[in-house]
Amino acid sequence: MSNERLKSLRSKDLVGIAPLEPGEIQLILDTAEELLDIARRPIKKVPTLRGRTVVNLFMEPSTRTRFSFEVAEKRLSADTLNFSASGSSVSKGETLIDTARNLMAMAPDFIVMRHPNSGAPHRLASMVEASIINAGDGINEHPTQALLDAFTMRRHLGRLEGLAVTIAGDIRHSRVARSNAYLLGKMGATVRFAAPASLMPLHAETLGVEVHHRLESALEGADVVMMLRIQRERQGNMNFPSLREYFDFFGLTPERLELAKPEALVMHPGPINRGVEIDSAVADGSRSVILDQVTNGVAIRMAILYLLSGGHGEPTPAS
């Protein structure tokens, strides 16, 4: 099956990048390429998913990702229902099976799920007939973010294979870093994680990445520099001493960016902490493709909805 182009995804769900084959990733990116065009038309809507229902189940706050999914759903003419339960009594203590039963009463075709705990979409996928799309689970995966990141890289640099991609920030708690490591590894890029060891997962090499404890060494000759949001409030005070010191040693400044290739892209999944992980001059600079990432996110999410929108035959189990 090496050269043969895949024509469909194998699972009814998209729970992560880990279970995907390179051919499936390719298919999603190629499909997104054609869908990007819809945003440039006078009428930014196609009737493909008319009469189909998407539940956006967000058990953790998120404006950007939910917004992006909603735009994608509406452009495909799906009916959308938003179910946000972050922090309320609903999310705590309600079992996944109860959640699943409640949702299935609305007969959705898709459930887009954001959950604070790793593995929740994987469990839900085995309980319901609807297609589950993981919009971020705990510290595990954020597959649509990694796909839109790869899509952005491919559009700007023409390829993924052979790229050197530096990902810096709170890697330990980052599902974005993990999904990117899986995806880029499968597509033949080299990923470098850069963070102090206190922000690095144990045995990070397991993910097939290079591990750097200083930003400078990780930046040398990089094609892409992806900065992750630093959330000190989330971490207590033990992982690093101060935001000032963090920026001093790990912030992406114009000087440090010089270490990367001249045409290197600067990416960030947002929201940006200016002056914490990235200097404003870099975030707004000519190499920044941060706003492209937002646009591309819609096309990627449309592609996934389209590719998973086949009929309800025998549901294949999520792997």
Partner: peptide
């Protein structure tokens, strides 16, 4: 994207390529 046989009328997960 405008076909009337895309979606639930198709066998599971076999959408035509765009």
């Amino acid at each position: 994207l405008y076909r009337d046989d895309v979606g639930p009328w198709r066998p599971a997960h076999e959408q035509p390529l765009l």
